[in-house]
C-alpha cells in the first residue's frame, strides 16, 4: 500500500528469497514501466496455478503491468479462476466473499479516501462473469449507481470454468456446455449497456490479443476512477478447458471472437475526457478548436 511497504527492513534483505529481492530492486514499483519493456524488468505477478495457456492469466498479467501506481493499488476479487493469479501478485489483494467484491471495494475505497485524503490509492475489482453478472450482480450495479470511485474489470470467460462448465449470464445464447447440455436459452447479458445506464464514466471492451490496448484501457480506467467515478472494463478471457480450445490456438480464438462479438468499444463521458486531458496529459482528448467559418 505504499512504496515503503515493499522495501526490506534494513539488514534483512539478504535473508529474503532471490525473487523477492529482484522484485524490490528491479520491479516496477515507483517507476514507469510499460508492456513494451516486459522481459527486462521483474514483474510483480508471480508463478500461479492457473491452467497452461489461459487467456485470463494473460489478461491479468497485462493488467497488473498496466496499473499506473502498483505500489498504491489494492485488488479485490472473489471465487473463481482469476483470483488464483491475482492473489499471486505483490499487490495487496482482498477477497470478497462470493458476489461481495463490489461491496467490499466500495467500503475500501471510502476508507482509503478518509485515511489518505487526496493521495491516490487505487482500488481495482477483478472478478469473473459469474461473480459479477450473476451472483454479485446487485452489488456490482449498486456500486455503479452510487458512483463509487473504483475500477471494475470483468474477466468474461462466458462459463463457470472451475466448477465444471455451467452457463452464466454472460454465456452466449444456444451455447452447449458440459453442465448446460441443452444449450443456453437466453441472450448474453448486456453488462456494457447497464454500465452506461448506471453512470460509469468509462466503459470498454478488450481482448488480450492486443497488449498495448489492454495497457491503455486499464490505465485510463484506473485514472478516471481515481478522479471521476466508476469505470468498467469487460475483457474476453476464454476458458480453453471448457471451450476445448487447444492452448496454441487461444490467441487465434481471441482474434476470431474479437471480429465476431467482442469488437473494441470505448465509451467515455465528457467529464472523463476532460480529466484525462487536463490532469494526465492525454492530448487526444483536448477539445478540438472550432473550425473557422468561411466568409463568402
Amino acid at each position: 500500500m505504499s512504496l515503503d511497504y515493499v522495501k526490506f527492513t534494513p539488514g534483512f534483505g539478504k535473508f529474503m528469497p532471490k525473487e523477492y529481492r529482484d522484485m524490490v530492486d528491479h520491479g516496477p514499483f515507483g517507476k514507469k514501466t510499460t508492456v513494451s519493456q516486459v522481459g527486462s524488468f521483474k514483474e510483480i505477478m508471480e508463478e500461479h496455478p492457473m491452467c497452461a495457456g489461459c487467456a485470463m492469466t494473460l489478461f491479468i498479467r497485462l493488467a497488473v503491468i498496466a496499473f499506473p501506481n502498483p505500489e498504491d493499488t489494492i485488488t479485490v476479487g472473489t471465487a473463481g479462476c482469476g483470483r488464483l493469479a491475482i492473489s499471486q501478485a505483490a499487490i495487496q489483494f482482498v477477497y470478497g466473499n462470493y458476489g461481495d467484491q463490489n461491496g467490499v471495494a466500495s467500503g475500501l475505497t471510502r476508507g482509503l479516501r478518509l485515511r489518505f485524503g487526496d493521495k491516490p490509492k487505487d482500488v481495482v475489482v477483478m472478478a469473473g462473469d459469474g461473480g459479477m453478472a450473476d451472483i454479485g450482480f446487485a452489488q456490482t450495479l449498486h456500486s455503479w449507481f452510487r458512483k463509487e470511485k473504483f475500477t471494475t474489470i470483468m474477466l468474461d470467460n462466458e462459463v463457470y470454468g472451475n466448477t465444471g462448465g455451467q452457463e452464466s449470464g454472460m454465456t452466449n445464447q444456444g451455447q452447449v456446455l458440459k453442465m448446460a447440455p441443452l444449450g443456453k436459452k437466453f441472450e448474453k447479458m448486456d453488462m456494457l449497456g447497464m454500465a452506461k445506464v448506471a453512470g460509469c464514466a468509462y466503459v470498454a471492451t478488450v481482448v488480450p490479443n492486443n497488449p498495448r490496448r489492454v495497457e491503455s484501457v486499464i490505465k485510463k480506467a484506473v485514472l478516471i476512477a481515481r478522479e471521476i467515478g466508476p469505470t468498467y472494463i469487460q475483457a474476453y478471457t476464454s476458458c480453453n478447458i471448457e471451450y476445448a480450445i487447444p492452448t496454441e490456438k487461444v490467441l487465434e480464438d481471441c482474434n476470431v471472437v474479437e471480429k465476431d462479438r467482442y469488437k473494441f468499444e470505448e465509451y467515455m463521458t465528457d467529464e472523463a475526457k476532460e480529466c484525462l486531458s487536463q490532469l494526465y496529459g492525454y492530448k487526444e482528448y483536448l477539445p478540438k478548436p472550432a473550425k473557422a467559418v468561411e466568409q463568402k
Partner: peptide, 15 residues
Amino acid sequence: RLCTQFCPEANTILY
C-alpha cells in the same frame, strides 16, 4: 519482442 508480451506466465519469457 512480441513473445514476451503474449506469454500467460509472468517472468518466463525474458529479454
